[in-house]
């Protein structure tokens, strides 16, 4: 691996604070060479693959330029995949951000160093970021055919509620499980903003005769709004890019884009149609890039309050 420390050759003998006469003779670019290993690595394992996706989306199997892949993706069932993906992501981002914000508020009111807060933050970190396949199995154990809740309802109420668990393996299941990992992610992203609400603001509002409602409506709400929408966008991107949970959960068909892409990579049928898979991947990049740009804009707005 080319990840050595910056080579000695590019280091002039003088420190950064004392640009002596000797330094001026060295080309200005020289210290920048120390970044070569890093950007070289990134170029090979991040930029090159991305470039291959972008280019491949506009090439046929023999490498000739074509628009057929893009046309395939924007006209057929794949377009429905995008619509469904966006619906699932938007629904779970909405539910996750509202519930997660409530949880963040409840946790922020507790002691800063208390056990409740530390345990909640640590477990939310686990559930939000390392779940994937494991969360799918957690829900199979809960609502699956032999899941705890399914069996309980069947044995004790004698009803076959929720059709014995089949809903879990389709789109409804995806929405429920995704929401499950969106709530903890919201807590982690949103908690710092809630922490930054100054107690003086509440005091000022109270001393001017404002009710608790007035405080939240006119002071805390507007101050938190940019952070809230930023976090919701992040949640959207998070759900939209997820593959693991869906792959472990969905048993039939490929309702959402990441699964369709996975299909292209694994199934024999798709051999020789790699271009369409790349066009799907390009579509994902476009959606996520738009969402993340919005996020950056909103975040700038939020930074005015988070100081």
């Amino acid at each position: 691996m080319s990840t050595e420390a910056p080579p000695e050759a590019v280091t002039p003998p003088l420190g950064p604070a004392s640009p002596g006469a000797r330094r001026r003779r060295l080309p200005w670019l020289l210290p920048h060479l120390g970044l070569l290993p890093f950007f070289g690595y990134l170029a090979v394992f991040l930029l090159w693959p991305t470039y291959l996706v972008l280019i491949g989306a506009f090439q046929d199997d023999r490498g000739r330029p074509t628009l057929r892949n893009v046309r395939t993706v924007t006209t057929s069932d794949y377009l429905h995949g995008f619509v469904r993906s966006i619906e699932v992501s938007a629904t779970t981002a909405l539910a996750g951000s509202v519930l997660g914000a409530l949880l963040a508020w409840a946790v922020a009111e507790s002691r800063p160093d208390g056990l409740l807060r530390r345990v909640t933050v640590a477990s939310c970190g686990v559930l939000a970021q390392f779940g994937g396949v494991m969360l799918a199995f957690a829900f199979l154990a809960t609502f699956g055919f032999n899941g705890v809740v399914t069996l309980f309802l069947h044995d004790h109420l004698g009803v076959n509620v929720l059709s014995g668990g089949t809903w879990l393996y389709g789109l409804t299941g995806l929405v429920v499980v995704y929401t499950y990992f969106q709530i903890p992610l919201m807590l982690i992203v949103f908690l710092p903003a809630v922490d930054n609400l100054r107690p003086e603001w509440r005091e000022a509002s109270m001393s001017l005769g404002g009710s608790t409602w007035a405080y939240w409506r006119y002071v805390a709400g507007p101050a938190l709004a940019p952070s809230f929408f930023g976090a919701a966008l992040l949640l959207f991107a998070n759900a939209f890019s997820s593959y693991a949970t869906a792959a472990a959960l969905v048993s039939q068909g490929s309702p959402i884009v990441p699964l369709q892409i996975g299909n292209f990579l694994t199934s024999e049928v798709a051999l020789g149609r790699g271009g369409a898979g790349k066009a799907l991947a390009l579509g994902m990049i476009v959606v996520v890039a738009v969402v993340m740009s919005l996020y950056a804009l909103v975040q700038r707005k939020a930074a005015t309050w988070l100081r």
Partner: peptide
Amino acid sequence: LVEFACLLPLTIPAIVLVVGIGPI
């Protein structure tokens, strides 16, 4: 620039990366 480069993987979902990384 380095910060931007390090945050880039958040914009490129892992599933997309896999699509392009075959030849590498």
